[in-house]
Amino acid sequence: MSSASRDRILAAIRRSQNNQPKAEGSIEERLKLRPRGPLPSVEGDLETVLIDRLLAAACSVAHASSPEQIGEKIIQWLQQQDAGLKLLRSTSPLLDSIDWPDTVEVYDPADGVDHSTTLTEAFCAIAETGSLVKLSSNKSPTAMNFLPDNFICVVQRERIVRHIEDAWERVRAETEGMPRALNIITGPSRTADVEQTIQLGAHGPRLMHVIIYCN
């Protein structure tokens, strides 16, 4: 049934297309060259722009220059939020190299426990929009980005790109095709569905903390 519909729909499209003038450009060319549209100007130091826009998107931001410092900054932030020192951590060479004090309980995604705080590393950050890009994998399941109350994300400074299109270039250069889920995340979850009043923490994270790492 569905395949009959497929043929019928495609035939109807073809008929309609033939009625209309053809736009310029071929499909092959477009898919090969992937032309970029007009790019909004992003001026100045990428890190400064990124921080500016992260703050505008209701994130908090910290810096760290060593794995130990990442740990310290996280503990500090969790204490400020009155949150427990317990976190679910995705695995990456950088995050794995953090030595945690005994006071902190750290779990791997495979443990699948409590999601109240998660710690992950971003694939890259986009200065234009103040966003972090997350790719799903066995090391970093998508649910970790959406289930916690407190979402902590580390990004390495050299992985800040200017425009969204630069992130696409990196994905193409460094991965084998698109992952199951690619999330561009810009601040905590929010809703304005009750009287247009913006309220953070709709279904996803209530707080988002970004640590920019540069050693």
Binding site: R53, I184, I185, S189
Partner: peptide
């Protein structure tokens, strides 16, 4: 300028 979440699902 962008929504909180812009996601691409592939397979």
């Amino acid at each position: 300028s962008i929504t909180s979440y812009t996601s691409f699902f592939t397979g």
